[in-house]
């Protein structure tokens, strides 16, 4: 399959500025081969959408990047250095932060404590205050609710806190697992607007998403994963037009009902 590498604002001669290189990764759960020789490259400043159905290996991809699942073979470099040997904590310190599937807030901690947990690997100081202000200005609602127990928030509010929590790590790469899952259409719009805004402010975004049309509408490039294999990749506009995608993901918008 011809690989399209047309990046906005880059001259064809420029060396691609690769932030995360996920290359030839094989991951197993016991006998289950979850990722089969999977490769992604994420360039600095991009929004990448990873599309696919249930149990296709999207969450395994996220966990491999965050370091909670160890691949059997393959290489994983961040900013030119291998991170395979690093713990999740060290990866957070390098600048990778997750927005987890189904939010995964700490339900009996307050909103503010959840934000603090996002900055767990950092020292409190001027930078921390600045990031807190940034989160509060992106999500005024989070500021209003900062002393509330997070388990009592609505799904949309929880997603705001989950994104805010990840931003508290001051990430260079934000890995988002199903940011629109279980949200009302209004919140879905809002979340994608926020993702675009965060990207404009300079954070690279890798987003696993079932809502293919929304994801592709803001992404620069995309990958399609099926049962552990990358079957399609390319420019988001091309993917939107691809008949296979139109049929599998855009024609019939399946809402993930069996979440969790």
């Amino acid at each position: 399959m011809p690989r399209k590498r047309l990046r906005r604002g880059a001259t064809p001669m420029a060396k691609p500025d690769i932030l995360l290189d996920f290359s030839g990764i094989n991951t197993y759960y016991g006998d289950l081969h979850a990722l089969k020789n999977v490769s992604y490259t994420i360039e600095r400043g991009e929004i990448i959408a990873l599309l696919g159905g249930n149990a296709c290996g999207k969450s395994t991809t996220m966990k491999t990047i965050m370091g909670v699942v160890k691949p059997a073979t393959g290489t994983l470099t961040f900013d030119g250095e291998s991170i395979l040997g690093l713990s999740p904590a060290q990866r957070v310190m390098r600048g990778i932060a997750p927005v987890l599937e189904a939010r995964r807030l700490f339900p009996r901690m307050t909103v503010y404590e959840n934000l603090e947990m996002g900055a767990y690997t950092r020292k409190k100081g001027a930078d921390y205050d600045q990031d807190l202000e940034r989160v509060y200005s992106l999500f005024p609602r989070v500021k209003e609710r900062r002393n509330q127990i997070s388990g009592t928030l609505s799904g949309g509010e929880q997603q705001m806190v989950a994104i805010g929590r990840a931003l508290m790590a001051r990430p260079r790469l934000l890995c988002m697992d199903e940011p629109s899952m279980g949200l009302s259409p209004l919140f879905v719009e809002m979340v994608f607007d926020i993702i675009k805004e965060i990207n404009k402010q300079g954070t690279t975004i890798f987003m696993v998403e079932q809502n293919a049309s929304m994801a592709l509408s803001i992404a620069h490039r995309g990958y399609v994963l099926q049962t552990g294999v990358v079957v399609l990749e390319g420019d988001a506009r091309d993917l939107e037009a691809n008949p296979l995608i139109r049929e599998a993901y855009l024609g019939e918008m399946k809402v993930d009902a069996d979440a969790e």
Binding site: M66, V68, S87, P88, A89, V92, M93, P98, L100, R104, L105, F106, P107, R108, M109, E113, E116, M117, G118, Y120, T121, R165, A169
Partner: peptide, 22 residues
């Protein structure tokens, strides 16, 4: 901070790890 790391781990160990709790 450590106490909050403990509570977070008790509530969701995997999420706590991904926040950088050892």
């Amino acid at each position: 901070k450590l106490g909050k790391g403990m509570r977070a781990t008790a509530q969701d160990p995997e999420a706590a790890r991904m926040m950088g709790v050892e």
